[in-house]
């Protein structure tokens, strides 16, 4: 096993472990900071897929924006939770969350059996592999945003502006919505 593969599987294991802890751990603060670990490791996986610009954007958008926003929402929503950080953890699987676990694992089973039954190397472009590392640079991404995908890009920017104005309006203090 080569060293790159070892790094890949270590990053994947970090993402899996921290994601599992995010959804199962009882404490909200720990879950938010474990989400941070998952996002950073996931950006390492983007670098492995030679999508380095996306890896940078992942760190800037998610870690710099989304996570800070989540911490703000946490601070604005429950201030009492920071006081009892050392509270004993409840049971992991209680009876009320059992249907959710069963449904999600059935979903995973269907997904994985479909994947394993599909011969993925049957796809033509996976077989012939005309991938050049120079194909995926920032240059090409910028050109295809500004030419082929200009209309979706503008639509997304308008949508983002509307969403931010709406969020600022919703979270405003004072008058009732």
């Amino acid at each position: 096993m080569r060293v790159e593969q070892i790094i890949f599987y270590a990053l994947a294991a970090m993402v899996l472990g921290s994601a599992l802890l995010v959804v199962t751990i009882r404490n909200l603060v720990r879950s938010i900071f474990l989400f941070f670990v998952a996002l950073i490791s996931l950006s390492g996986l983007y670098i492995f897929a030679s999508a380095d610009f996306i890896a940078i954007a992942q760190i800037v958008i998610y870690v710099g924006g989304v996570l800070v926003l989540m911490l703000f929402a946490f601070l604005l929503s429950n201030k009492e939770l920071l006081n009892n950080l050392s509270r004993p953890v409840n049971r992991l699987i209680n009876i009320s969350s059992l249907p959710g676990f069963l449904l999600a694992s059935a979903f995973l089973f269907v997904l994985i059996s479909a994947i394993l039954n599909t011969e993925i190397s049957w796809l033509g472009y996976v077989q012939q592999n005309h991938f050049q590392p120079g194909d995926n640079t920032v240059h090409n991404i910028g050109i295809s945003i500004m030419t082929r995908y200009l209309l979706p890009f503008e639509a997304v920017s308008m949508f983002l502006m509307m969403a931010l104005i709406g969020a600022a309006h919703l979270a405003r203090k004072g008058q009732k919505i």
């Binding site: 472009y125 991938f131 995926n136």
Partner: peptide
């Protein structure tokens, strides 16, 4: 998108992130 050798997939990743 890397396997396809086509940057369009990464453009859509940006849309999803937005």
């Amino acid at each position: 998108s890397v396997y396809h050798g086509d940057p369009a997939g990464q453009v859509f990743v940006f849309f999803v992130m937005a």
